[in-house]
């Protein structure tokens, strides 16, 4: 674990730094694939960056709106407004951020006349880079930790030898990324890369989440991210089915 990076008198939160690096490198990867697909790489980067920024602002706005009574109780008004804009961790609403980020992304894609499927493929690839860095951030913070294990590669964390779950997902994400990048010519059909990455990440979530000790759960113990992973996989398979022919071409 390395939650804080100390440079002289300055302390930097390592997980957030890694996430920023992941966002930047992810957008770089998306831009590169976008360029190969004939998209303007600067616009691919800018669209992703704008959507991420809008998502960040949306997550704070969503949190404030959901907890408006708490904010409106603060006096004077200037102090309340300062509380809204101060960058503090824990005052975000992920769902609101996701919705605002997607809406902003769709707006810029429409405004700049970007082909949606090629754009999705580019961001799916970039998303794997972000996922890999997200796991490095979790290694640094000690979050997303595995259940206790007696296996020799267990890592000591929170008082037990645990599955290095962050490393499992990191390796799987890097493997999937390498595969998608190496086979990018074969996977040139717009939308194909997105479908395959959806299936890959969905299966990763289904398998690895079962080894997670701090899973968000609901409805009597169901793991949220396993449900999300299955939904992603099923969605991608439905997409494949929709694109597939009803009969063999020879049979017509």
């Amino acid at each position: 674990m390395l939650p804080l990076l100390r440079i002289g008198p300055l302390s930097v939160r390592t997980p957030e730094l890694l996430l920023l690096a992941g966002l930047w490198l992810g957008l770089e990867a998306a831009s590169r694939l976008g360029r190969e697909r004939g998209l303007d790489p600067d616009r691919v980067f800018a669209l992703g960056f704008n959507a991420a920024l809008a998502g960040l602002l949306g997550s704070r706005l969503g949190f404030v709106l959901l907890h408006l009574p708490a904010y409106s109780a603060i006096t004077p008004l200037t102090r309340a407004l300062l509380s809204i804009v101060t960058p503090l961790p824990g005052t975000e609403n992920a769902a609101a951020g996701l919705v605002v980020g997607l809406v902003a992304g769709a707006y810029f894609a429409r405004r700049w006349h970007m082909p949606v499927l090629d754009l999705l493929d580019s961001y799916a690839l970039g998303g794997l880079v972000l996922l890999a860095f997200g796991m490095l951030a979790n290694l640094a913070s000690g979050d997303y930790y595995g259940v206790a294990t007696v296996l020799p590669w267990g890592i000591p964390l929170w008082g037990a030898s645990r599955h290095p779950l962050q490393a499992y997902v990191l390796l799987a994400a890097v493997g999937l990324l390498a595969l998608a990048w190496r086979r990018r010519v074969v996977l040139a059909e717009p939308g194909l890369t997105t479908r395959l990455i959806l299936i890959g990440v969905g299966l990763m979530l289904l398998v690895f989440e079962s080894l997670r000790a701090d899973s968000p759960v609901f409805a009597g113990g169901l793991r949220f991210w396993q449900i999300a992973g299955l939904a992603g996989t099923v969605l991608a398979l439905a997409w494949f089915a929709w694109r597939a022919p009803l009969t063999e071409p020879d049979a017509r």
């Binding site: 939650p3 804080l4 939160r13 949190f63 404030v64 907890h67 708490a70 904010y71 109780a73 603060i74 509380s83 809204i84 101060t86 503090l88 961790p89 824990g90 005052t91």
Partner: peptide
């Protein structure tokens, strides 16, 4: 939490 807390965060 590592870092400064705010009143809204505490209240919520």
């Amino acid at each position: 939490y590592t870092g400064m807390l705010s009143e809204p965060l505490l209240r919520t």
